[in-house]
Amino acid sequence: MEVFYLRPTNGRANDQLRRNHSSQYISIPGYPWEKLRKETPGEYEAYVDLVPAEWTGIKIVVKDETARLYVNDASQPTLIVNHLKQGKDMRGSIGLWIGPGILGHFTDIKVTKED
């Protein structure tokens, strides 16, 4: 699976390195965050201003092997992944997930396929 995830408590942390880990891409199997962070530091993570317990708008645009993550109606992507690890011919489902012990809500979900 190809995964984008957000860490809301990192968005306004006082530690800059922790802030830089507020958005992240991983790909399972084969590319967990630990491996990507070690082998390609900073390439699959980026800062984004997040506030815990506030609504966060997310848009993900995928075209061929490139995915762009947009947060809170930003005109520019927060994170760009130029080579999705599963490849451009991947098929499957879309899932929404939150970590253990975390409370999360989802609303107004839209999936659009462009020609």
Rank of each mutant, 00 (worst) to 15 (best):
I80N: 06
W33G: 02
R7K: 11
E34C: 09
K113N: 08
L84V: 03
E34N: 10
I94V: 10
G42V: 08
D108P: 08
K38R: 15
R7E: 04
V71E: 01
P77K: 02
I94E: 08
H21Q: 13
N82C: 07
A67W: 05
H83S: 06
N20L: 12
L50M: 05
P8T: 12
K63A: 13
D64C: 08
P32I: 03
Y70F: 13
Y44D: 01
M1A: 14
A13L: 04
A74M: 13
V51E: 15
Y5D: 00
P52M: 09
G101I: 08
R18W: 08
P29I: 04
G101L: 10
I109V: 15
K59Y: 14
F4G: 00
R7S: 07
L69Y: 01
K63G: 12
V81C: 00
G101W: 11
K88I: 07
V62Y: 00
R37S: 07
Q86R: 14
I98A: 15
G11Y: 02
T56A: 04
P32G: 07
A74G: 14
P100Q: 14
I80K: 08
E2S: 07
R19C: 07
E54V: 01
R37G: 03
P41A: 05
E2P: 01
I102R: 11
K88N: 10
Y5P: 00
E65G: 04
S75D: 10
S93H: 06
V51Y: 14
L79F: 05
Y70E: 03
Y47T: 14
A53L: 07
S93K: 13
N72S: 05
L50Y: 00
S22T: 11
D89A: 15
D15K: 09
G11V: 09
I94R: 06
G11P: 01
N20I: 13
I102N: 10
K59A: 11
H105D: 08
D108S: 14
E54K: 03
Q76Y: 12
I94C: 09
N72G: 02
T66V: 15
V81R: 00
T56Q: 01
K35N: 10
K63N: 14
G87Y: 13
T9A: 11
E34K: 04
L50T: 02
I80A: 07
H21P: 04
Q76D: 14
L6K: 00
Y5H: 04
V61Y: 03
E45L: 04
D64W: 04
T78G: 03
T107V: 11
E45P: 02
T40Y: 10
Q24D: 02
T112L: 11
D64P: 00
K110N: 08
H83T: 02
L6F: 09
K59V: 02
R12Y: 12
A74W: 15
Q24L: 02
F4S: 02
N72T: 03
P52G: 05
Y5W: 11
I28F: 15
F4P: 00
N82D: 13
G95R: 08
I98H: 15
S93V: 04
G99M: 04
K110Q: 13
Y70W: 07
V3N: 12
K85C: 06
Y47H: 08
K110L: 12
T112R: 12
A46H: 09
Y44F: 11
K59G: 06
V71N: 01
N82P: 07
A53C: 06
V51D: 14
T107E: 14
L84M: 12
